[in-house]
Design a protein around this nucleic acid. Structure first.
Length: 479
RNA sequence: GGCUCCAUGGUCAAGCGGUUAAGACUCAGGCCUCUCACGCCUGCUACUCGGGUUCGAAUCCCGAUGGAGUCACCA
């Protein structure tokens, strides 16, 4: 059996769109699943859109995503060059070969003549006008230096068919396909042509790409046939949508891999989520490592209809990844976000991490979860009233005074020991532990909700700051 | 508009002629609990419609409707 070769062929635009990344991921998974080779080819023929450093963005995104290419501009596998602009010179000869073989022909039609072909909607189909030119006539005009173009010669009738790996049988009437331009008047290939030539030359036998090519694929096949090349297998993928009508696109902003990283998503979670968008594993487990994805990936599970991107679910999945992190891993990932909050350099990040891990779904939530620590000041004492707990301001004040007295000389300021201390105090006073802890937490933070309990807050704040805040709150209550 | 393709809850989706139509996210309620989370439990919500085929259709066929893609000297 032939070895599977797939490719990802992005344009270096400076960012990696989520939809492209998914296509890339599937091409990678399919290759790896079948022990094949995954090739990276840079399609930079569109010089106008060329962005400096954009190729590096592609490398770094793939790296972060855990997708490793076997061949590419930086990893020669003998099928190079892997950058399209370095392949410019070979397309014209292939086009000429195709003309010889009858799969294409020279066209000298002017822009004006082409315009007359347009219907009232501005849609034109070339009428094969130049196909009837004799070989001599063509040569004469070529010699005269006339501007020309090379067009594909699509049969006028009949149907073209192929089997798509996900969509099944596709058949398109030949009369609906135009004789597209293969070589432009400047001698450069169009994308369609370059793609076919490159894929063939690079031995790509499994072409995995977006559905936008589903109906033009028969044209590509016609070229393969005319050249006498073996047709590749095709796997077309439905788009990722922003909502039922709109495709997820860079125009709407936030659809780039980098944007999600900035918002505090973990690369692994993003990859995991997009793997699930448009494909579903056999089992019920959704949190999957790259290894598991490779192992479980299967064309069978790819869906044909477009799928809507659901950030809420990706967020949840990201939360699952965060919960599975060790304190060290979390601190490392969260450092930029902690440094970007009011808490920077003031608290022990590891202690903070323990509280944050179960409470944060994306790292971007960190500042808002943690800033309250530095926002302590005058607050509304009505918070101390708690019906269910049977707490009034008086009870709260008594508790706080007792706590202050009890902790005055206590030095082992850790969550665990403070908790024991609190329990003991409650027993001594003959009250519910909540009547101790709740007022204590409020007194320390002045915040209705906090990420953690009184003793955890106390540990974080340290003894002197805790005692200071306790005193402050007591006085506030005594007013 | 022509052509190609698609159609299960709000979202991702399982399903492949006989099922109480999975599971996950979201949402609601509950338990746990010093608040918030986490965790656990429960619940809500779906086969687009209409015709066939069949003893039997979410599953097969046809049509309608809706949606996507495509019709460049762009990629």
């Amino acid at each position: 059996m032939e070895k599977v070769r797939t490719r990802f062929a992005p344009s270096p635009t400076g960012f990696m769109h989520i939809g492209n990344l998914r296509t890339c991921l599937y091409a990678y998974l399919y290759a790896k699943k079948n022990g094949g080779t995954f090739v990276l080819r840079i399609e930079d023929t569109d010089q106008e859109r060329y962005v400096e450093g954009a190729v590096d963005v592609i490398y770094s995104t793939l790296k972060k995503a855990g997708i490793e290419h076997d061949e590419g501009p930086d990893k020669d596998g003998g099928y190079g060059p892997y950058i399209q602009s370095e392949r410019k010179s070979l397309y014209l000869d292939y086009a000429k070969e195709l003309v010889e073989k009858g799969g294409a022909y020279y066209c000298f039609c002017s822009k004006e003549r082409l315009d007359t072909l347009k219907d009232d909607k501005g849609i034109a189909k070339y009428d094969k006008h130049c196909l009837s030119l004799s070989k001599e006539e063509v040569q004469k005009r070529l010699d005269a230096g006339e501007s020309y173009v090379i067009r594909q010669n699509v049969p006028a009738d009949g149907v073209s068919e192929y089997e798509d790996m996900v969509f099944g049988h596709i058949s398109v009437p030949n009369e609906d396909m135009e004789d597209n331009i293969l070589i432009k008047s400047d001698g450069m290939p169009t994308y369609n042509f370059a793609n076919v030539v490159d894929d063939h030359l690079m031995g790509i036998n499994y072409v995995i790409r977006g559905v936008e090519y589903l109906s033009s694929t028969p044209k590509y096949n016609l070229m393969y046939d005319a050249f006498g090349w073996e047709r590749p297998h095709y796997m077309h993928l439905s788009p990722i949508m922003k909502d039922a009508q709109r495709k997820l696109s860079k125009r709407y902003g936030d659809a780039n891999f980098e944007d999600f990283i900035e918002k505090g998503y973990l690369p692994k979670a993003i990859v995991n989520y997009i793997a699930l968008l448009g494909w579903s594993p056999k089992g019920n487990e959704e949190k999957l490592t790259m290894e598991q994805l490779v192992e479980q990936f299967d064309v069978d599970g790819i869906s044909k209809s477009p799928s809507i991107f659901d950030e809420a679910k990706m967020r949840w999945l990201n939360g699952e990844y965060i919960k599975a992190m060790s304190v060290d891993e979390f601190v490392e990932a969260a450092k930029p976000f902690l440094d970007n909050s009011k808490v920077k350099d003031k608290y022990d990040y590891r202690a903070l991490a323990k509280l944050l891990i179960p409470r944060v779904e994306i790292l971007g939530e960190i500042p808002e979860k943690v800033n309250f620590l530095e926002e302590f000041g005058e607050y509304d004492t009505a918070m101390f009233e708690h019906k269910k707990m049977k707490i009034t301001k008086e009870i709260a004040l008594n508790s706080l005074l007792a706590i202050e007295e009890d902790l005055k000389d206590f030095e082992e300021w850790t969550d665990e020991l403070l908790k024991q201390k609190g329990m003991a105090l409650a027993e001594k006073l003959g009250c519910k532990s909540g009547q101790i802890f709740l007022p204590f937490r409020l007194a320390l933070t002045g915040a209705q909700t906090t990420p953690g309990g009184a003793t955890e807050m106390a540990e974080l704040l340290g003894k002197s700051e805790s005692m200071r805040r306790l005193r402050f709150s007591i006085e506030l209550l005594q007013k």
